Amino acid sequence: MPLPLISPMLATPGTLPPPAQDARWAYETKQDGQRAVVYLAGDGGVRLRARSGEDITAAYPELGPLGGVLGTTAAVLDGEVLALDQQGRADFQLLQSRMGLVQAPGKAARMAATVPVHLVLFDVLHLRGRSLLRLPYLERRARLEALGLAGPFWSTPGALVGHGREALEATRAHGLEGLVCKRIDSVYEPGVRSRAWIKIRNMRTADVLIGGWSPGRGRLTGLPGAVLVGQRTAAGGLRYVGGVGTGWSEAERTELAALLRADATAVCPFDTVPPAPGAHWVAPRLVGEVRYSTRTRAGLLRQPSWLRLRTDLTPEQSAADLPDTSA
């Protein structure tokens, strides 16, 4: 019997459940990888499909042996493909070197030897010819864990019922992306962004200097679509750390545009000219505070959004919160 194609259930951004409801929720570490629905046909084969439905099996040949671990038992599993750094944490930048190799199996095989991936499994959707979608989360988790799926390139991390605040603090302490809260009585809703699953991303803040801006389009014509920001290096230079294009109200964006025009300069203030065609440069006098999730190995901010102008800080007082990129 062919396995059914199932779109992954999605989590809604939010906050921790109220303390009085804590025991009704399970908590899993939020992983920074590529979502994958895994199809084990029971004949030794394995297929992985991305959220888009694309077959991504060929990009990850090291996961091939997973097809035989359940013998003739057919199953559909939900999980996430990760690339781990030297500290064992998910590194999306590393994973990007593996994604997109579906049409290049030779390169995928070579990359598997130097940048191996790891598949974390957190749900079972179909098992032994029966759909499990209408079963509550806790029962599905029990059935998943009973499969004993642990191997060189895959694992089934545990979930914690209750103690949500402690779980969230632990992810922050270990530098992990965040937490997913799942209601223990929730059914699996394919393709739905459900309130029964809540994702909480650990966000960080940093002080940055604005060194330029990219023009907006459409209703933002004449206004900055994004500001180009940097941070001071120990040598006194200005290292580019990314572009920030969200977080303003219309009034704030208009006010910022006037400030940027007053600081216009023909010279790029960054140590290295950033890849921003059509950018307008400004003298780095304005200090801003931004929120971001993580940094790439090159020090760029991931998912940055604007918080506020730091009119209380001079450019000399802004913190140089730069990572060590010498490794």
Rank of each mutant, 00 (worst) to 15 (best):
L160N: 00
L138H: 11
H118Y: 14
L147F: 06
M111C: 11
F153N: 14
A112G: 11
D123A: 10
P136R: 12
H118V: 15
L133R: 03
L149N: 03
A146R: 12
G158V: 03
P116E: 14
T114G: 12
W154P: 02
A113Y: 08
G148D: 08
A159T: 09
H118G: 07
G129Q: 04
R143G: 06
L135V: 06
M111I: 14
A159V: 14
G151D: 05
R141V: 12
D123K: 09
A150R: 13
T114F: 10
L127R: 09
R143A: 09
V124G: 06
E166V: 10
H118S: 11
G162F: 02
P136Y: 05
E139H: 07
L168Q: 07
R140Y: 03
E166T: 13
A113D: 13
L127A: 09
S131D: 07
A159I: 04
L121K: 09
F153T: 09
R141S: 03
A146D: 11
E166K: 13
G148C: 07
V124Q: 06
E169R: 09
L119C: 11
L135I: 04
V117H: 10
A142T: 13
L168K: 01
L138Y: 06
A159M: 06
A112I: 10
H118I: 10
L133A: 06
R165Q: 12
P152V: 13
D123L: 07
Y137H: 14
L119K: 10
G151T: 08
E169C: 01
H163D: 09
H163C: 00
V115A: 14
L119I: 11
S155D: 12
L149E: 03
L138C: 07
E169Y: 00
H118P: 07
R143S: 02
S131R: 04
L127I: 12
E169K: 02
H126N: 06
E145I: 10
W154Q: 00
T114K: 15
W154Y: 12
V120P: 03
V117T: 15
R143E: 09
M111Q: 15
V117A: 11
G158L: 08
V117S: 09
P157I: 06
G129E: 05
L144S: 03
V115G: 08
M111L: 15
L127H: 08
H118W: 14
L125K: 08
T156V: 13
F122S: 07
Y137F: 15
L147N: 08
R134Y: 01
L144G: 03
L121W: 04
V124D: 02
F122L: 12
L125P: 04
R140K: 05
L132M: 13
H163P: 00
G162Q: 03
R134P: 00
L168W: 01
G162D: 02
A142V: 04
V124L: 05
R143V: 07
V120K: 05
W154L: 01
R134L: 13
H163R: 12
R143P: 00
G148E: 11
L149I: 04
L168D: 03
H163M: 02
A113F: 05
H163T: 00
S131V: 10
F122Q: 10
M111D: 12
S155P: 08
G162L: 02
L119R: 09
V161M: 06
Y137L: 14
A159R: 07
A113V: 11
E169G: 01
L133D: 05
E166C: 00
S131G: 04
R165Y: 02
E139M: 13
A113W: 03
M111S: 12
V115Y: 09
G164L: 02
Y137D: 02
P152D: 12
